[in-house]
Amino acid sequence: MERRKFLKQSALASSLFFVPSFVKAFETNLDSELGYKRLVIVQLSGGNDGLNTVIPFRNDIYYKSRPNISISKSKTIKLTDDLAFHSSLLPLKRLYDKGYLSIINNVGYPNPNRSHFRATDIWQTASASSQYLQSGWIGRYLDAYGNHPYNAIEIDESMSLALKGERATGIALTNPEMLYKISQDPYLNNIQKYYNDEHLSEHNLGYLYKSMITAKSSATYIHNTNKTWDSKTEYPKTPFANQLKTIGRFINSGLQTRVFYASLGGFDTHVNQLNSQKRLLDVYAEGVEAFVKDLKKQNTFKDTLILTFSEFGRRVKENSGKGTDHGSANNVFIIGENLKKQGVYNNLAALTDLDDNGDIKFEIDFRSIYATVLSKWLHVNEKPVLNKEFEPLHFI
């Protein structure tokens, strides 16, 4: 079969650019004796306003800085004597009351970047603000400790930098059944029959063909495993909740995936923030609560940790558009059944001591959270992944 014909006619050829290439087999197997811990990462894209999410309802500076968009005490859900949830986060409050939530405040890094694209890259690669990496921290985890193509899956049409390693890469998909149907393209079957390893090495397109063949195997495994389970839990009818429902089905069916990645966009609230953020926090909290219920029914929540972050917080002072501009430090949510530090992990930074841009100063480096998750949850050495040692925290 002519390669040109294959590339031109095969629908699989175009779709597989969203599927990773696993040309080199992973050399280090995950230790099955450790159990099968799973990490679910949720990115609130656009820069969620952490100060209107976890609210210092007794702080006069907060209300003076936000005369139009501050949340009155009567419309909050009290957490501690000083902090409260946005009213949309009642589902998260129920998890909080059960000891399933740890709120880490003032999370960031030195010399913060307030560009969406650059700040996202920093969080996804675990780099310093002045460092540019071409691989993501989950991708490097796969490089060092993965043993299957599907050890990391993002529920999206395209893959984030976070899942791209130097030798291995995670899978991006929105519909496992569609991925399987695409993988059954007859041209791919012909490629498998026609090209052996020796033949592949003689062609410039051998790399692409190997990637497609490996992706076919991954799609078949995901399909065959996923179809064994059908969730009975009712999820909200939102695209975000559907991402979590897909992840829940993967987990409950026993798919051998260590890391899942989901996202909810729209948090760049420069104007008319109150209504936009309320709606988005509703979507987030209701989706997460349904997800936790789904896992608990099957006793898989105990082996699942959910990490929620946003690429930066927002400015303390509101702007003229009744919104907030890009900030720096923010809160991170850790959700799990066996947390060592439940509730509010640390106090909100003083609003009397802001940085030169009027932003909350960071206290906890986000890479310390990654180091904790890697070493204490996934039970691997974090240094090959983060390229540096960071002080672990004590939430797990």
Score class of each variant (00 low, 15 high):
M1V: 11
E2A: 07
K8W: 05
S15D: 12
F26R: 13
F26N: 15
L30H: 09
I41T: 05
G46Y: 01
L51N: 06
Y62S: 10
S65F: 14
P67K: 09
P67H: 13
P67F: 10
S72M: 13
K73C: 12
K75D: 15
D82I: 06
L83D: 01
L95V: 12
K98C: 07
K98E: 15
S102H: 06
N106S: 10
P110G: 05
N111H: 09
H116M: 13
H116E: 12
D121L: 09
W123F: 14
S129L: 08
Q131G: 06
N147P: 05
N151G: 07
I153M: 08
S158W: 07
A162Q: 08
K164R: 14
R167F: 09
G170C: 08
I171R: 11
P176D: 05
E177V: 08
L188D: 03
N189R: 11
Q192S: 07
D197C: 02
K210I: 03
I213H: 04
A215N: 10
S217E: 12
H223D: 14
N224S: 14
N226R: 10
K227W: 06
D230F: 06
P236F: 02
A241N: 06
T246V: 15
L255V: 09
F260P: 03
A262N: 02
H270N: 10
V271K: 13
K278L: 04
R279T: 11
R279H: 11
R279Q: 13
K293V: 04
Q298N: 13
I306E: 07
E311D: 10
G313V: 00
G323H: 01
G327E: 00
I334N: 00
N338Q: 09
L351P: 01
D353V: 13
E363M: 04
A371K: 10
L378H: 08
K383N: 11
L386K: 06
L386P: 03
F390M: 12
E391W: 05
L393F: 08
